[in-house]
Design a protein around this nucleic acid. Structure first.
Lengths: 130, 130
DNA sequence: GATAGGGCCTCCAGTCGCTGGAAGGTCAAG
DNA sequence: CTTGACCTTCCAGCGACTGGAGGCCCTATC
C-alpha cells in the first residue's frame, strides 16, 4: 500500500502519516523508488492512532498507548490511569469553557446589537464589572 | 510604571506584555534607559485584553474589540456579532469535548484497572468497536 | 568604590500537531 | 511523448505565548 491508499483507509491525511513516521510512531517499509510501503500492521496502528487522537489523547499519550497495546504483559491499570488522567483534563476544559460560555451568553443577551455605540460587552471588558 | 508593576496590576506576565507590544496591541513609551514606561491607558488596555483573553477571544478578536472600544461611532451590533461568533465556537468545542468525555468515561468504567492485560480501552482503540 | 541582587532589555528557540508550499522524482494512461 | 496524478524531501508557518541566554541598569550595602 502506498501512502494515498493508507491515508484513505485510515482516514488521516498523508501529511499526518509522514509526520507520524517522522516522530517515530510508525516505520513503514520503503520501495526501491523511495515510496513508503505500508503493511497491514502499519494501517492498523494508524487507525489506532486516529481513534486515540479523536478521543483527544496527546501524541505522547498515543505513543504510550501504542506501546501498552503491543505489550501483552501490560497491566490494564496503566491504561486506565492514562485514560483517567486524560478524562480529568477534558473535564477541566469543559468546565472552563462552560464558564466562558455562561459569561459570554449573558453579555450577548444584554447587548442591543443595533447601530448605537452603547455596548455592555465592551463595558464589561473595560471595567471587569458585570 | 515599569513592566513589573503593570504586570502585577493587569495580572499578565511581563513576557506576555512584551509580546502584546511586539504584535502592536499596545505601544508603551520608553524611558531614556530603554525601559518601557506604561501610562494608565496602557494598563487599562492590558486589563481589557486580559479579560477578553479570559473569555477565550483570539488575539485578532482582541485587536478588533480594542478598536471597537476606542471608536465612539461603533455599532454595538459589530461587537455583538463578534461575541456571538465566538460563543458559537465555544459551544462547538464543548460539544466535541463532551463527546470525548462520554466515550472516555464509558471506556474507563469498563476497564478493570488491575494487573491483568485485558483492557477494553485498548480493544476499542484497536478495533473502533465498542 | 566595589559588589550583590533584582529588574529590565533583546533575541532566539521551543511548545503542539500538524499544514501549506516549493522543487523535484515516478508512474500509468492516452 | 506528454499529461496529470502520485510520491519524495525540506522548510516555514500557525497561535499565543514561554524559557533561556547574554547583557545593561538601578539601588543598597559594605
Amino acid at each position: 500500500m502506498n501512502i494515498g491508499d493508507v491515508a484513505q483507509k485510515a482516514g488521516l491525511p498523508p501529511k499526518t502519516i509522514r509526520y507520524y513516521e517522522d516522530i517515530g510512531l510508525i516505520t513503514p517499509l520503503r520501495d526501491t523508488n523511495g515510496y513508503r510501503v505500508f503493511r497491514e500492521s502499519d494501517l492498523h496502528k494508524l487507525a489506532f492512532l486516529g481513534r486515540a487522537r479523536t478521543l483527544g489523547f496527546t501524541i505522547e499519550d498515543c505513543r504510550t498507548l501504542l506501546a501498552l497495546y503491543e505489550d501483552d504483559t501490560r497491566a490494564s491499570a496503566d491504561v486506565k490511569d492514562l485514560a483517567q488522567a486524560h478524562l480529568a483534563k477534558i473535564e477541566d476544559k469543559i468546565t472552563q469553557l462552560e464558564s466562558m460560555r455562561d459569561t459570554l451568553s449573558n453579555l450577548v443577551k444584554s447587548c442591543a446589537g443595533d447601530n448605537r455605540p452603547d455596548c455592555p460587552i465592551l463595558s464589561d471588558l473595560a471595567t471587569g464589572q458585570h
